[in-house]
Nucleic acid binder design. Structure first.
Lengths: 344, 344
DNA sequence: CAAACGATGTGTAACGTTTCATAATCCTCT
DNA sequence: AGAGGATTATGAAACGTTACACATCGTTTG
């Protein structure tokens, strides 16, 4: 890659304006300076098209005004919404964002940390899965949805309450035999409190619940097998399922359709995330909605806060329930809007 | 924000290893050096946990290995898929990506350019709308979907052929009175060739077509009004509509449903973009699919190519047609899979 | 055996900024 | 009018790296 002619430096501006280097620096940084000097410098800078070299600045000051966001990828609403919000929040605060994606690969996570560390970012916001992520504590780090250590603040939605909310809702909607289905990473993260909350609420209400956990390694087939083992004479023995993610709802939905089990008539489904369809903005399914924007803003706030010595280790933000067609609410929901899909 | 203890520098490593600064630099950069020296340096670096300060490096070498991606936002599949791919392609080539979003605001676009210019990125990939974006030609720039000037390479999908493809498809599917509907920015971009391609194909086939263009400023209501004016006795006078984007398909679909016009029985719809539903991966509607990954890879390739003097000003990548339920194909498509939505 | 050469490590200048001690300038007050 | 103090501009040092000229050492050759 070729770059035409070097861009002007402060030295050039100083020469052009006939003032000292330090004066130019002051003007650029808004430090009070004699009016005529300020004018001369501003004119010269404009004439030359000067713009600060933040690499030189970042070298000198130990502050780069850059934050790294490390995510598995952007191919999921939750991730892209998070990235969008984080980017926006950072811009508002005068920070830049460098984005690195890991494809759920723990090696890539380590490489990303390494990479952004070289880049001397002022901090990292990360959504990672490696059980032993090496983050020196010289570099401020805020973790999303995964508690790593007491010295690393973790921002997540209130997974426990969300799980409880899902249980309450299923029971309220008349379910007698609710089931919790979990699929996810082998490592235990904050999101695993969803099941715990579900169980706690069920026990409190004395409900006849079941909780079944699978790992990504088991494959989705393990869940299908489980469901099949619980279908007796075309009838599923559960009448409500809380799935650990909206994506899981999709798979379950698909499988149940194959088995001619009707949703939501025979079994009601609640997911977690708050995934919405494009354009229509309808929820993909009945779901516990994570406050993505708030999570992003909170993560940024904590990361950039002056005093990081007293930040809580774990911050849980409130979730809400949103009906989305896979449960039988009393009133019809907005999804009725999408009836045209019937003809497809 | 507080940073604990400064990180070790090459000087520290040199002292620790008992060698000269230059030798450390050579080892770090893989320049041949005596075996024992190499070992000493590597050991010392590992012991101290040294990592390169890319700000110092970027200051010295006029190369930062950083590329900026400027997008309206990430809240659209096309944008997030593009960001995902660009990020991935850059990582493969050892580059970092800084992401800036503009919210479709042309002022924000200018601020972003300004910001990344300060950041001395090696180049910019931008998807912008400002009619007169000020990009000095000292900074390599690749534009997506918008031709700016002969010296700025533009990567887009083959909008013209895509429009033609949509026309051909509608005619092939039996439409006698096809309509092209456009909504978009006030400034004319590459995407406007969609309509041109449609018109060209219709004229070639002697079809009785109509072409109607609206701007964002007109509001979606203008399109609804237009449609209403062409509904006679409950029947729309067009039997096929090519919409300039999938999003427009959504609005049209919604409006036609209100007016009890059936899709695809009464009128067939084709969009542009290749938007897919989450999880299901089904196309949102019948559509002309943009090769997002290829666009990202191409943009990155061009931006990072050594010799930018002979790059073509405009690169159009091939699009494909994908049926998605808003047209009446001979064979049933994969969307049949989503029948369960019927019950929602 | 000495001179010349090649190979390899060393140290310093430069990149563009900010900061800070110093110098210059301007007032003000005696 | 001149000295003292307050204000403001100046210029050099430093940030961590790379590149290049130079010094050093070992080896080959006449």
């Amino acid at each position: 890659m070729r770059k035409a002619g070097k861009s002007p430096t402060m030295k050039d501006v100083a020469r052009e304006a006939g003032v000292a280097l330090g004066t130019v620096s002051k003007v650029i940084n808004g430090i009070p300076v004699g009016k005529s000097y300020r004018q001369k410098v501003e004119d010269a800078a404009a004439r030359l098209g000067y713009s600060v070299n933040s690499y030189a600045r970042g070298l000198r000051a130990d502050k780069t005004h850059t934050v790294a966001l490390i995510l598995p990828g952007l191919d999921h609403t939750f991730f892209s919404a998070l990235a969008d919000s984080v980017c926006h929040e950072l811009t508002l605060r005068g920070y830049r964002m460098v984005l690195a994606t890991t494809q759920f690969d723990t090696d890539a996570e380590a490489r990303c940390i390494q990479m952004v560390r070289q880049n001397k970012v002022d901090g990292i916001i990360g959504l990672t899965y490696a059980p032993d992520l090496a983050i020196g504590d010289d570099l401020p780090y805020v973790s999303i949805d995964r508690y790593i250590s007491p010295s690393i603040p973790c921002v997540s939605s209130d997974n426990f309450s969300g799980g409880g909310m899902a249980a309450e809702k299923l029971l309220e909607l008349g379910c007698k035999k609710p089931l919790f289905l979990r699929i996810g990473s082998e490592v235990i993260g904050e999101t695993d409190k969803r099941g715990a909350g579900f169980v706690a609420a069920c026990e409190l209400r004395g409900a006849d619940y079941t909780s079944q956990r699978f790992n990504d390694a088991d494959g989705i087939e393990a869940i299908f097998d489980f469901l099949d083992r619980h279908i007796q004479g075309g009838r599923l023995e559960f009448d409500g399922i809380f799935c650990s993610t909206d994506r899981l709802v999709y798979y379950v939905l698909k499988h149940l359709k194959d088995r001619r089990v009707r949703v939501p008539e025979d079994v009601q489904l609640i997911g977690f995330d708050g995934t919405r369809q494009f354009f229509t903005e309808d929820y993909f399914c009945s779901t516990i909605v994570q406050p993505v924007r708030q999570m992003a803003a909170t993560a940024v706030d904590i990361l950039l806060s002056e005093d990081r010595s007293h930040t809580p280790a774990l911050i849980c933000l409130p979730v809400t329930y949103a009906p989305g067609g896979t449960t039988q609410e009393a009133v019809t929901t907005a999804t009725g809007d999408m009836e045209w899909q019937v003809s497809i």
